[in-house]
Structures are given as structure tokens and as C-alpha cells.
Design a binder for these strands. Structure first.
Lengths: 745, 745
DNA sequence: TTGTCTCCCTACGGGAGACAA
DNA sequence: TTGTCTCCCGTAGGGAGACAA
């Protein structure tokens, strides 16, 4: 009311009665503007959303597609009925169609702001088959950027808050968490008795929203008042939904929504997306496959994952895996109604789901019996890439055999909910409720302390690697799938695998709910403060020495490129890796999540608010970067879940020293796996030849285009990537199980 | 507030928060309920809306269809560019496809309440060609009911009011015109100090709306208060929109909307109607034609008329008409932006619009130059059925030659805006603004005094009939259409044309705006009152003697069967015709239109409110019946427009005597054309044989199945119908030009 | 630090008669 | 007869500090 242009509640249905309030940005009429909105899109989609990158290869399973389109994927039915075979649909397509992702378009529903993506696929099997032997791992490691992700995107500050009842009530405004306001909003003139300003934020559609931002009350707090209720009403926000603010480097505010539940009563998605009815979608796909032309699938982060589009690497891995009757497995099944749960079961059969139409299809080729039969309606058929072998196995899967070291580490964890760092080769997710939260799409912050600095033994690593079967590699375009054969990929099975810690348990818990604050007004200093130095020496995490390297680490565009190797994994100069800062102090539990990415103007850690010590390297990855880890190729979320939080408390970084995995060595590590040592001491066997350097190496170098970065960094990177690919094979964890949440609406 | 269940303003987008307010009628879940909603549909569509009846034959012009779908109908382009021929669309369909209307489904947009109809067409050329020689006129006169129109539909009372600013303001309710309230709403207990009641009305979707109806104020007036603003908000009504209430015989209230302008910001119609995109619509039509299977076109009363579906009869007539270069014509062109205007022009060329793809097509085969070139964007090509020969003709079109009498009559009109009754054979529309209103879909009440009671000569009629060219009759299913041959339509250009009066000018004006009240709480008495008798003698209009005849006139189902011959024209017993009542006094100008159709309980004209004298026959037709005249076969609106209002003032029926056209003769007349006289003195030349009696004659007789109606009435009717069919041929007036407003969305 | 509550106050809008076209 | 105005009044809801978790 103090001179600020007030927003009024507008009527619905597009009859804008108050044109002055919401103004469409002239430069972004209807599609998403390239840079900021990409970040916003991913922020709204949630960190678990991974998209294949443009140019990557996926496996399209028409059988699964058809089942989903015909609503026949409910599962739990008699497996003998053959699924949707009764229908007179032409299905003269192979069961596995290799496709190249030629385009990815990010969209947001006009009515609901719900984000979705359209993937354009082109059948591409011949080329793939030719390239297979060499391209296999390369493909998994290909660090190309996700399409559309701006490489020049810049530092952003953002926060995400789940709306409270007060936030959505008609009577008040929006209570802005203090640090969020300080970090994302322009500073107020606190000298005034009741400082206030007008904020203008653009949503995904480029529509401007104006809010009065005031700092008042006793005690003082930040509030959005005028304009807020209009926004709530217009977006039909309810308590439980989350809003996120994102500040670009230019100071421009972006505003996103993540709803707790899909907005009811809206236009059906298929209509809103101009999608033809279901049967047509499939037939068009079939036609496109026959003519090797492009077809489209829609990706909705909200809908139940469907695995009829599988990342190439994951599919390869599932082919390599040997699943035999009697083998126990575990997976993560997302029920339609209940929260996500982790389930285990027993493989009771292996066979085609539709022998007549798609013989040899891997789609739902495994018959399983779940341990908890109480929950009916669960599918008794799964696809190989949906599951992973579990603990006590009758079959011969070495993944289930933890090394003695790991077992010891795991046992050292007093809290079963938070397994000790390092985990084991067949990791346990611990208490499932945590993952529940994670899988609901709440934020997961980067708790990956990339490397713990120890160059300890890595035989375990190669050992596990050796166990990965690679049979089925030649079944690529197969109409008949073979059972996987065992193959030893690594000659040195004892690669070290040191885990790194998460934060202290409660914090970890909160973060998994997406409510954690990662406070830091400015990114991390070029020079290390005391606590950082302490971390470097004690916990073995490295600090940064130059902002250019930091930029490599935090490159925000990477933070949006789910399904890709995050820069940290593409290759890492050990020098750089030793300089990761220590984690910042974690604020009290709240429903606010803050993202902190790269800073253009590095600051001393002690600068700003000294109450918040610099964060450690793991945190530096940030939620956005962490979402990379949940991508298709490296489902690092699995690692994440397996990891125990680091014993180091944020309030006392010295606790890092107590981490069993932080042995003080300075080797390059990833989640406790010492990558550098693996590279140094052992040679990796990558299918008949040295690993080809990832394409991205130069790119990353160029990105962090400091002349100080030698070309050798790229080579190191390449080796690291190779190791990571081995890691990837180890990571067929529940997070990997549903790597892509594709759905054709 | 007095115990009535209040409606609250609900939120939009279907998230019904107040379920109690709007309740979906259990028996009409989503489609229109048969009886009441049919009337409501037509009421909402407006009286100018004419649909072909089920089973009738139309001509489908794929060329026009395609042009509309591809947005190529804007016209005004260089005619040499050939239109949309550049596109690679298959067009192996004949230019004229005769189709039978196998189904008509009435719909209403969920979001906007906008009414539309879906027509199901089946190509039917062979049958037609066989039946042509005999079926030609029969088809035109076929009095079958419009599909779905219940023949048992009963008396309804309805009114339509254009909303005022007060009606739509947030501050008040809806001011109900007194007579409307008394006629349509249940009576209030006027003994109370402030009588009120709750009204429940269902809209087109069956949704119930509740309103508090109160009678208060000083002076007293009827108001809808509580619930009204909710309705206004929900329907997004604005000042200028019209609401109509319709009371069924069961007392059930129906509620419709007729918007002044299409609701902006709504869902595109094509989406709302589940219609595939444009190109698909055409190809499906093409396929259906090839396979002689059904296809659908959508009819939207709001959209710009498109003539790619033409009534069979009209098409035939256009084939018979001779259009030659240099001939002047007139038409009614509805501009996209401006109001509807009448235009004249000169035919400058005759030739195929797309010689390569549709040689011989009549579609836009006439090149024209408009008289007023100022308005750009006008199509310089028209189809023959869009125009009519106009005044000064180089060709030999008798229609353009006014009789001396008519000229005299026209001159006798002091007010050029309201030409005297009778008009002339080549009528002038007079001031176009009036017709603007009519064509905007506002109500047009029945000003047709069907027959003036005299059984006088009808030579003029047969003369006109004789003039009907029959060339082109054998071009029916032609892929190559022949140019129509020139032929002298009338041998006696000076046939008498006696007009009958409309109301007094201002009233006429109001009615053309659709705002006239035709007050009468109950239909018209069996016995004539004084004024009625006065009218009968003076103006030559007949009064009714029995309610059964009256029922013929007012049959409500007829009022919904646009595009058919109204019963009055199917055949009329002169005895009956002499008994048409005189017009009731017209109330003061208002924005209310009341419909009064057949009454089950006849009342004395002097009964009820004596301030409102009985109406004359012309008014008795009522708007609903009048809409028949605007149908495809007889676009009587043209006549109507041509007619001058009767000089007889409603307040003084004796003025009828002053009408130059009501010269006291007692001949059977239609809009000044003495039908009986025409029929008697001249023989009709109908293509090698006497005119076959229209099918409708018996039917009408049966409809007015009073035993008092002798069979001779049917014969007389037949003759009248024949005459009318000749009239029809004469009536290729602007109203005829766009007889069907078909559009494929 | 922030969610919720209560108080205060304004604006909106519904209902009524007044008044005039 | 009815469109508009103005008055009256109830209520929704926005903004503020109080208070407590």
C-alpha cells in the first residue's frame, strides 16, 4: 500500500482484467526463454528429473509404450494373458529400437505451470550397431551438454519453500525465510523503520508478478504482501505446494512452482500439449520407426515413471546383468497412491511378456514375486533395468558380495538409517522413508563430497567391475534377447572404494525432504579460510585455488544437464580437487531449500555472515549439480542413497576427520572411490582399446578457459570418466531403476 | 437473504467449490436433453439460424471447404492465383457433392455456452440424380421436421433480454421486465410486502442456477438478486449480452445466453469440440466422399458464413439463375470486423476459380467488382448462390423491375428508413443499419402476415414460377459445371405485389433489434375482439376462428424448424387466413423480447391486460416461426427486409387501413404478393408438368388436424406452396445469399 | 526464525429505495 | 416501466504486530 503497484486478484480463464499486473515479457512470448527458464524448468521439475541429452542414444521399447498408452501397464495381472496382445494393432517393430535423441524441448503447461519436455527421437539402430563395440562406454560417458542448456548461464541464487497454511491463507502474505530473502532479493534499506520494495519476478511463461517485499514485525521478518495472494489465487496454490525463486546474475527474479499434487480440474495434459489421443501416438511412433523418421515422446516429471525409453547405457547394463530364477532383487517401486517405497522380491521366471508379437523383448521379461504381497496391484513382471540384484543371492552376482572393508565400514555406522560412507557394492538404501521424500521430487542437495582425498586401495573397485557381465552387447537390435554372460571388465578387481560422508543425520534427512538451506550469500572464496583449511587437511577434501576451476565445478548449465556427467566427473585435476571448500553450516530445519551455485565474484569464506562457515566440497555441488547425478547415465542418486552422511557436522567441520573414509590422502575420489588411484595404479579394460577421451574434455576446459588449465587436465578427466563409467555399472541401484520418467500422454 | 439458498461466486476452471449451487440435472449429463434444450438451443442460436433438416439434401463443395480450412477464403486476392491450388492436397473429389444430412446434433460449448451443431453428411449423388426431375421441388418444400425437434413440444413462454450495465454491475441484480416475469416466472404472492421466491433455471448443459426473484422497489419491479451475480460472473456476461429464459409447460425454467461478442480467451473451438486440426478435417471429408461414408461438418452460428454447404434447392436455383458479365447484383456481405452490410456490384467475369483441380466448379465462379471498393479485402469472387441479380440489369431479370404500383408504394413512404409495405420485386433493403441488427442475430419477430385472407387472383405467382429456369438441373453431380443459361424468368414483369404492413416504424425498428416485446400472457382468443375485427376488415388480415388453426400457425416445433416451410406457407385455408388476429399493442421500446407461441388454453383477446390489444396475424407468427422464413429454402428475411413496416400503428390498428398495400382487397397475400391472384390468372410452368403437390400439405393438415379443416384446405395449401416455391426462387436476396452458415472449425 | 493468530481497517459488493428517463 | 444511482451494511481479505513453537 505504500505506493507500490498493487496486484489485484484477477479472474480466471485468460480474460485478463488487470493487464498491468501480469505482463508478458516481450522477449519470451510463449516458449521458454533460453537461459533463465532452463534453470527454472529444471528447478521446477525437481532434481530427480533427468533427461537424456540431445544426441544421446536411448532404447525405445514399443511394447512398453503401447502398454502405457493402452493403460495396460497396471500390472499385477495374470502374466499369462499376454498383455495387450489382443488388440489388432500393428506391431511390426522390433522390441528394442535404438533411437537418437535429436531434440529436447522444454515446456510448461499454460494453465498449471507444470513442466514437461518433448523428446524427439529418431530410430538409429544401424549406426549404433556399427559403433557399438567402441561406442559403448563412450556413450555412457559422453559429456555433451543437454540441448538448450546455455553454456554461458551464470550464477544464480535460488530458494524453494513449501507453502504453509499461512502462506496460502487469504489473510496474509508469504513469509520469506530470512536467508532466502537476503540471498535472492535485492537488499532492503534496513535503516528505514519498515523497509519495503517491489519485487518483479517472471514465471515460466515470462509473465511478470509483482510483490511487495517488506521487512517488518517483531521480531523482524521478510514478507511478501501485496501481490502475493493474487499469485496464489491465480496459480491456484495450496498449502504444501512449493514456490521457488531464482535470481539471475542480472538480478532478474524468476518464479517457479512445484505442486504437491497435480492440479485437478485442469485441461487434460494431452489436450494442453496438442497431443493426439493415445492410440494415435503409438501408431505415429510405429510409422516413424518404420520410416526412420522422427517421433516424439512426452516427458512429464509428475507422471509415474515408465521405462519404455531407457538410456542406452542402462539398457546395455541390464543386458549384461544376469538375472536367474531364484535370484533376489530389490527395486524401488512407486505406487500410484502411496508414497514411494523400496521393495524386494524374488525372480520367479524369465520369459517374454508377449512371445507372439515381441519375441525376445526384454520388456517385463522377468517374472517376480515381491516380498510384501500385501500390496496388491504390484506388477509381477519387471524389466531388467528396473531392478538390481539384492543381498542374499542364489545366483552368481558379485555385486551382492561386499568386500570385507565395506562390510566393516557399513557396520561402523551406528545409525542404520545413515549408513557410513563408502557403503558397499550392493548398497542398502537404509530407511526407505528418506528416499520416499527424495523420490517425491523434493530437492536433494549436493551431498557429494566428490573426492575424499585419500588414495587408498581400490582393488574393490575393479573387483566389482570385473563382475559386471557384458553379454548381450551384441543383442542390440535383437529381436531375441539373450541371457547375459559374465565378463570381467577390469583386470584389477581391488580398486579402492572409499565413501565420503554426508552431513550429520538430521540434516541429511531434511535435505532429502528438499527443505534444507544451504546458506551462503556468495560462493566460495578463492582463498581458504581457517575452517576450510582445516577441512582440507583433516577430511581430505580439497579447496579451490582459482575461481576458474570453481567455475568448472559449479557451472550452472551443468547443473541443469541431468543425465550427463557433471563436470566433476568428466575429469578432474587433482590439484583442483584438493581445494574443495568445506561445507557451510546448516541452518535449522525448515521448508526452505536454497541453491547456491557458482559465483562470479568469489568471496572469502569468512566474509559475509560469519555464522555460516564455508561449506564443504560435497555441498558445493549443489542441488542443481546433484541432479546431474540422478541422470540416466550415472544414477548417482543411488550412490547418494547408499552413502551415509558424513559424520562431520556442519557446525563443526572438524568432524569430517572422524569420517572413516576420509583417510587424509589426496587422491581423486568419487563417493569414496578413489578414481585417481584407479587410473594410476591400474589400467582399465575398456573393450579392446583405451578409452577415447570424452568429447567434453575440451569443452570443459574451454568453459573454465583459464590459461592455467593445461590440456593434461582433459586427459586426466578422460581417465576419470572411464573410471566413472565403471562406477556407473555398479550403480544399478534403485535410483537407476527408473532412470527416465518418460511418458506419452 | 431471506432464507433463500444463496449462490456464491465460484471459482473458475471447473473446480466447483460450491456444489450446491449449480447442480447438473441427473437426466441430462452432458448432451442436450431432447425437448426443452432443443428450443433453448434455437433460442440461443438466434432466429436467423437455419439448419437443414435431417434427411434433406445439401450440396457440399469441397473446394470451399478446403479454402475455409486453409484460411484461403479471405478473398480479395488476385483471382488468377488460383487460390489454394498450390497445395499438394489430393482433391479427387467432384466439385459438387450431393449429400444427405443424416444427422444433426446440437451442442453447446462447455466453457462459453456457445451453441453449435454437428451435421453428419453422407454423399448421396446417385440417388439424387435419379430422383431429380421429380424431387426437385419436393425437396424444397419438404416439410419434414428438423431432426430432433419434438413434434410434441409444448407451449413455452420465454423472453430474451439484453443485459444492461446495471444488470451486469457488481452492485445489483437483474432487472426483470415485468411482463417477462409475469409470463415466465411462477407468480409471486403479491399480497406480501416484499414478495420473493427462488427460481431454479437450467442452462444448456443442464446446470441449475438459482436466483432469488423479488418484487420490490418503488415503483415495484421484478428483480433477480441473489445468485444473479454468480451467474454473470460464471458465464462471464457483460453488458450487451443477452439472457433468455424459457419456461416449459411443466414450469421448468431454462436459461440461455446469447453473447454480443464471442467470448475471448476461451478454448479454441476446435479443441473444445474435439475437432481435429484443419487439414485433417478436409481429408477425412475427402475420404468419406470417396467411400460414400459419413462425414461431419460443424455449424457455428457465430462464425462467418461459409457457403460450402448449400441447400439443395438453393443450389438448384443458382444453377438456374443466369449470371452474365455486366450483370449487376446485390448481396449481403458480412464483414469480419464491421457490421453486416449489404453490397452491390457488377459481375465482371465467369470462370473457374481452380480450373486445374475443380474444373467446372460453381464455387466462387463469378468474378465481381463491388460498388464500394473502399472496403478492401472483400472477395472479388462469389458463388452464384451468394448473390442475386440487382436493380438495373443489363440482363433480363424480371425481379429487378419493380411494378409501377410498387414504385408508387415505395415512394409513398415518408420515412426512407421504413419503406412502405409492399416493397417491390427488386426490393431495397432501405437503411442498412436496421438489417445490421437483424443479422447480428438479434431476435426478429414474426412480422409475416401470412395471407391477407382474400382468395384473389394468383396469376402473378404462377408467372413467377414460370420464370424459374431449369437449366443446370442435369449438372447435379457434375464434375464440370455448366454456366447457367440465360433465361427470362418472368414473362410479366409487372405482376402485382401487394405488401402487407409491418408495425409502425419505430416498433419495426425495435423488433429488428430483437428487443421487441410481444406481450400477451396467453395466446390469442378463439373469438375476435373488436380491434381484431377491425383489423380483419381494415388491413385485410384474417383472424382466427379456432385454436386449432392457430396451432398451425404457432406450432412451436415449427418455430424451431428453420429452413422449412412454415406451416403458414405450406398451405392455407383462406377461411383460416381471414382469421388472423390483429397485432397486439406494442409495449414501449425495450431490450426484451418475448416469445409467445401456441397456447393450449385460448383466451379472449380482450382478456388479460386490456392495455395490450390483440396482435395482428403478422405478429402471431412470432419470432420462432419467423425464423423459418430465414431458413435455407425461403429466405424470407429478404422479403422482410424489403418490406416496409405497415403504417398501421399498434396503438391504433386502424392505421392499417392507411397502408397503401392494404387496399381493402381480400386476396391471399404474402408480403404484398398476392398469392391467390397469381395462382388464378396464370399457369405455372414447372418443367414439363404441373407442380406436384408438396408433401407437406397432408402433413400440415394433419398437424392442424381439426376436423373443421377440410381436405380442400390441403389443396389450397398445395397451391400456395407452389406459389411460395416460386417466391422462393424470387428471393435470392441478401438473406438468401448465405443461407447456411456452415463452417468446419 | 517463522508459523499462526488476532486485530484493524478498507474495499467490494449485495440489497434496498430514490429518482429519472 | 425500468435503468441507474446512492445509501447501507455485511463480509472478505489484506496488513500489521503479538505470540509461541
Amino acid at each position: 500500500m505504500t505506493g507500490i503497484d498493487l496486484n489485484t486478484v484477477e479472474e480466471d480463464d485468460g480474460v485478463a482484467q488487470d493487464q498491468a499486473v501480469r505482463r508478458r515479457a516481450p522477449h519470451s512470448p510463449s516458449s521458454l526463454s533460453p537461459s533463465v527458464c532452463l534453470e527454472l524448468w529444471h528447478a521446477c521439475a525437481g532434481p530427480l528429473i533427468s533427461l537424456p541429452r540431445k544426441g544421446s542414444v536411448v532404447v525405445y521399447l514399443p511394447q512398453g509404450h503401447l502398454e502405457q498408452l493402452t493403460g495396460d501397464c497396471a500390472g499385477g495381472e495374470d502374466p499369462a494373458n499376454g498383455g495387450p496382445c489382443g488388440e489388432p494393432l500393428r506391431c511390426d517393430v522390433p522390441p528394442h529400437v535404438f533411437c537418437r535423441v535429436v531434440d529436447i524441448n522444454l515446456h510448461a503447461e499454460t494453465a498449471t505451470d507444470e513442466v514437461y519436455a518433448q523428446l524427439s527421437l529418431v530410430p538409429d539402430s544401424e549406426e549404433l550397431e556399427k559403433q557399438l563395440p567402441e561406442a559403448e562406454l563412450e556413450d555412457e560417458l559422453d559429456p555433451d551438454e543437454l540441448v538448450g542448456v546455455s553454456k554461458t548461464s551464470v550464477t544464480r541464487h535460488m530458494f524453494c519453500k513449501t507453502l504453509t497454511a499461512s502462506d496460502t491463507s487469504t489473510h496474509g502474505g508469504f513469509s520469506v525465510p530470512r536467508r532466502a530473502a537476503e540471498d535472492c532479493f535485492p537488499p532492503l534499506d534496513y535503516k528505514q523503520q519498515r523497509p519495503s520494495q517491489e519485487l518483479i519476478a517472471k514465471d515460466l511463461h515470462g509473465t511478470e508478478w509483482r510483490f511487495r517485499h517488506i521487512y517488518r514485525g517483531q521480531p523482524r521478518r521478510h514478507l511478501l504482501t501485496t501481490g502475493w495472494s493474487a499469485f496464489v489465487n491465480k496459480k491456484k496454490l495450496v498449502s504444501g505446494d512449493a514456490v521457488l525463486f531464482l535470481r539471475g546474475d542480472d538480478g532478474e527474479l524468476r518464479l517457479g512452482i512445484r505442486r504437491a499434487a497435480p492440479l485437478k480440474g485442469g485441461v487434460p495434459c494431452s489436450v494442453a500439449r496438442g497431443q493426439s489421443p493415445n492410440p494415435g501416438a503409438f501408431s505415429s511412433a510405429v510409422n516413424a520407426i518404420a520410416s526412420k523418421s522422427v517421433f516424439h515422446v512426452y516427458y512429464n516429471p509428475r507422471t509415474r515413471p515408465s521405462d519404455f525409453i531407457v538410456p542406452y547405457g542402462l539398457f546395455l547394463k541390464s543386458l549384461k546383468s544376469s538375472f536367474s530364477i531364484g535370484m533376489r532383487f530389490k527395486t524401488h517401486v512407486e505406487g500410484e497412491d502411496a508414497a514411494d517405497r523400496r521393495h524386494t522380491g524374488l525372480i520367479t521366471g524369465v520369459g517374454d511378456r508377449d512371445p507372439s508379437r515381441w519375441p525376445g523383448s526384454k520388456w517385463k521379461c522377468l517374472l517376480v514375486r515381491w516380498d510384501d504381497d500385501v500390496e496388491t496391484g504390484r506388477q509381477n513382471r519387471v524389466s531388467p533395468w528396473e531392478i538390481e540384484p539384492a543381498g542374499s543371492v542364489q545366483g552368481s552376482n558379485c555385486l551382492s558380495t561386499p568386500t570385507s572393508k565395506r562390510a566393516k565400514i557399513a557396520l561402523s555406522s551406528a545409525n542404520p538409517n545413515f549408513p557410513v560412507p563408502g557403503g558397499n557394492g550392493c548398497p542398502d538404501f537404509g530407511e526407505s522413508a528418506r528416499f520416499q521424500k527424495v523420490l517425491q521430487g523434493q530437492e536433494v542437495l549436493g551431498f557429494l563430497s566428490p573426492f575424499d582425498g585419500s588414495g587408498a586401495a581400490n582393488p574393490q573397485f575393479s573387483e566389482m567391475r570385473r563382475c559386471i557381465p557384458d553379454g548381450g552387447r551384441h543383442m542390440m537390435a535383437a529381436a531375441a534377447a539373450a541371457r547375459s554372460s559374465v565378463r570381467a571388465p577390469l583386470e584389477k578387481p581391488d580398486a579402492p572404494c572409499h565413501g565420503i560422508g554426508f552431513g550429520e543425520p538430521s540434516r541429511f534427512h531434511k535435505v532429502l525432504q528438499g527443505q534444507e538451506i544451504f546458506p551462503s550469500k556468495q560462493p566460495f572464496p578463492g582463498a581458504l579460510g581457517d575452517r576450510q583449511a582445516e577441512n582440507n587437511g583433516g577430511a581430505g577434501t580439497g579447496g579451490f585455488t582459482s575461481s576458474s576451476f570453481r567455475r568448472v565445478v559449479f557451472a550452472p548449465d551443468d547443473g541443469r544437464t541431468s543425465g550427463r556427467w557433471p563436470p566433476q566427473l568428466r575429469g578432474y585435476n587433482p590439484l583442483v580437487q584438493q581445494q574443495s571448500p568445506s561445507p557451510a553450516q546448516v541452518s535449522s530445519p525448515s521448508s526452505v531449500l536454497m541453491f547456491q551455485q557458482a559465483a562470479t565474484t568469489p568471496q572469502l569464506p569468512g566474509g559475509g555472515d560469519s555464522r555460516y562457515p564455508p561449506r564443504r566440497a560435497g555441498n558445493l555441488l549443489g542441488a542443481a549439480s546433484f541432479s546431474d547425478f540422478l541422470g540416466m547415465h550415472v544414477e548417482l542418486g543411488a550412490f547418494h542413497g547408499r552413502r551415509a552422511p558424513t559424520p562431520a557436522s556442519d557446525s563443526d567441520p572438524r568432524e569430517d576427520q572422524e569420517s572413516p573414509s576420509s583417510g587424509g590422502s589426496s587422491s581423486c575420489r568419487l563417493f569414496g572411490f578413489s578414481l585417481t588411484e584407479t587410473c594410476q595404479g591400474r589400467s582399465m579394460v575398456v573393450d579392446g582399446g583405451p578409452p577415447s577421451p570424452p568429447q567434453s574434455s575440451n569443452e570443459v576446459t574451454a568453459e573454465s578457459s583459464s590459461p592455467a588449465v593445461p590440456q593434461v587436465a582433459a586427459k586426466s578427466m578422460a581417465r576419470s570418466c572411464t573410471k566413472v563409467s565403471a562406477l556407473y555399472d555398479l550403480c544399478a541401484t534403485p535410483f537407476c531403476r527408473s532412470p527416465c520418467f518418460f511418458t506419452l500422454l
